[in-house]
């Protein structure tokens, strides 16, 4: 089934996303994996900073903020909106 993979940076607040691809490389990739940005994991988009960037995400019951430079390289499928 063709999926509509979106970068985390484009998802609206409140959406839940199942990650499928992380195109960040190097040390930051390791850091993201450590934090739970692992393919297969579900991430919730929380809120944007008052100035629009970074965006806070909920992953593994913790809140992690990422700048657009990074969150635009993490992709996943939207699996639900505000409820779930």
């Amino acid at each position: 089934m063709p999926t509509t993979s979106v970068p985390l940076s484009n998802a609206k607040s409140g959406t839940h996303i199942r990650l499928n691809r992380i195109e960040v490389q190097g040390v930051l990739r390791r850091r993201l994996l450590d934090l739970g940005f692992v393919p297969g994991n579900v991430v919730e988009v929380l809120q944007k900073s008052p100035l629009g960037d970074p965006i806070a995400f909920r992953v593994n019951n913790t809140t992690i903020a990422l700048r657009k430079e990074e969150s635009s390289l993490i992709f996943g499928d939207i699996i639900g909106g505000e409820t779930s």
Binding site: D34, L35, G36, V59, N60, N61, T62
Partner: peptide, 9 residues
């Protein structure tokens, strides 16, 4: 205890 998934890592 509130975020064991990541912490157990």
């Amino acid at each position: 205890a509130t975020s064991l998934e990541r912490n157990l890592n």
